[in-house]
Write a protein that binds this DNA or RNA. Structure first.
Lengths: 113, 113
DNA sequence: TGTCTACATATAGAGAGCCTACATGTAGAC
DNA sequence: GTCTACATGTAGGCTCTCTATATGTAGACA
């Protein structure tokens, strides 16, 4: 997966895995990998700053917990985060429709119609 | 359309509109707009440098023409450009599958399966 | 005891590409 | 004479993602 391709879609991805359950960063990375069928391996240097940005925007809240002697920062969607996710989903549809419409192969003799 | 979303997909877009016919920059911008159903308005400051980059990569060749007193630089796909387009198309499918798989809404009680 | 792997978070710095804004010029309509 | 459409191009900035690195705990294994 080309790194640049994810640009601008990371927010949607993060918001989406947090939709129904709060998770900490490390678990988010694993969830992303599982849900994408192994296609998405997002590095920690991408996820942690992105989560903080999303929190700064008011889409997430976080709190520390200690589990098995290890500290975790667990993130949870805010009401604004749920709204943002809905927006991201419809933006994703518009985006794929637009790009897909251009990329779709067409025969030379029947242009667009 | 959020600007960042296009990041990394511009090459595919440009290659695709040039697949069956050579076009000049201005016409490419119009074609992108038409084919995307009006969703894509790519500014000249994005397209012209991108076309040059693609030419530098060997995916396009260009030649100047004068039509109606106006100068145009017309771009055409090379053999390598056709191959690159095929690669971009399959990358696009993998990308949408991966992100789509994560974004797809799921009910809280039936996770992934 | 020491080492390795998995778990867990974080930051600095670099790189790339897309955008805004601006510059330049022709042709045709009004 | 002015305005819009046509047409190309560059400089500079911005933002996000990545690589690399740092730090530390827990548990397995030898």
């Amino acid at each position: 997966m080309n790194a640049d391709a994810l640009r601008g879609h990371m927010d949607a991805l993060l918001l989406s895995v947090l939709e129904h359950e709060p998770l900490h960063g490390y678990a988010i990375i694993e969830a992303l990998q599982v849900r994408s069928g192994g296609a998405l391996s997002v590095p920690t240097g991408t996820v942690y700053p992105a989560l903080r940005r999303l929190e700064r925007l008011g889409y997430l809240t976080s709190e520390w917990a200690t589990v098995g002697g290890r500290k975790r920062r667990t993130y949870r969607l805010t009401r604004a985060g749920h709204a943002a996710l809905a927006g991201e989903r419809s933006a994703w549809r518009r985006f794929t429709d637009a790009v897909g419409g251009v990329l779709a192969p067409r025969s030379p003799e029947s242009p667009a119609r």
